[in-house]
């Protein structure tokens, strides 16, 4: 049986510069796969290729046995792939609730004419989406902020709003790009629980995160990138002991000194 999401030899160059080269790994339902590596290792670029924001220069993305390489994000959304962004992509011009409701787009959209005339079917769809959105806001702890303008929220709150919006799609694969960035310890723990909970419901999660404690705690599998290439992968304990990984984070000299210790960013 093949995995739910398979990344095969993915690569991309920008103006002759190799940003990501020959990266392969797989993710199964319920699994949390973390992609780690120093700044500029190509983690976000990799995410952008998997989610269709960039068209890969080489390799393939296979979702549930289907080649979806370079497919537009809106089509991938229909196939059950969703993501959040490292540098927030919030609908600043809308309320918190509307941001979450937007995540229900695929399920709430219907005939244009019904929308223009505000027919009962439109109202029904909108009501259902709103109820779903409120439940999700509750889940990420933003229920009280529902009616506020999204732009007025703190960074950490917006991170959670993005997660709520991505969850609204009921994805089968969820890509989270630094979900805990800018969050305090309590919020980080909440996100931690949330991710574990979502994974437990059978979603395959790809995670980019700088908080190494969190990564080591919740990941089933870790992929390490350096200079755009995969230098290691495996279980958290194994990866953290890998000299190549430590060298990548701390430099080759440190690797010798710190061998056996857990790398932390």
């Amino acid at each position: 049986m093949s995995a739910l999401l398979e990344i095969r030899n993915l690569g991309i160059s920008f103006g002759g510069l190799r940003a990501v080269h020959d990266v392969s790994f797989a993710a199964n339902p319920g699994e949390i796969v973390s992609v780690i590596g120093p700044n500029g290792a190509g983690k976000t670029t990799l995410f952008n290729m998997i989610s269709g924001v960039y068209r890969p220069g080489a390799g393939a993305v296979v979702l549930d046995g289907r080649d979806v390489t370079g497919m537009d994000p809106f089509l991938l959304a229909r196939l059950g792939l969703s993501r959040t962004f490292q540098n927030l992509q919030i609908f600043q011009n809308m309320t918190v609730l509307e941001n979450a409701v937007a995540g229900f787009h695929l399920r709430e959209s219907g005939p244009l004419l019904a929308d223009l005339l505000n027919l009962p079917s439109t109202r029904r769809r909108a009501r259902a989406a709103e109820a779903g959105a409120r439940a999700l806001l509750e889940r990420v702890g933003l229920a009280n902020a529902a009616e506020r303008e999204a732009g007025a929220l703190s960074y950490g709150a917006l991170k959670r709003l993005e997660i709520a919006r991505a969850l609204a799609l009921e994805p089968r694969v969820l890509l989270l790009d630094e979900p805990a960035a800018g969050c305090n310890a309590v919020e980080t723990e909440e996100i931690d629980h949330l991710i574990a909970e979502v994974a437990a419901s059978g979603v395959a999660i790809l995670l980019v995160e700088h908080d190494m404690k969190m990564v080591m705690r919740i990941s089933n599998h870790i992929v390490v990138l350096d200079h755009g290439e995969k230098i290691a992968e495996g279980k958290p304990e194994a990866v953290s002991r890998d000299p190549k990984v430590i060298a990548a984070y701390l430099g080759p000299d440190a690797a010798a000194l710190h061998e056996g210790e857990v790398a932390h960013a």
């Binding site: 989610s51 269709g52 924001v53 537009d72 994000p73 809106f74 959304a77 969703s82 993501r83 962004f85 992509q89 919030i90 609908f91 600043q92 011009n93 809308m94 509307e98 409701v101 937007a102 787009h105 709430e108 959209s109 219907g110 244009l112 019904a114 929308d115 223009l116 505000n118 439109t122 769809r125 909108a126 989406a129 919006r165 991505a166």
Partner: peptide, 19 residues
């Protein structure tokens, strides 16, 4: 309406709208 919300969403962030 859902359509209007989608229009305003793509105005706010086209990439997030696609996602």
């Amino acid at each position: 309406s859902p359509t209007g919300r989608a229009l305003r969403a793509l105005h706010g962030s086209e990439i997030a709208a696609r996602v």
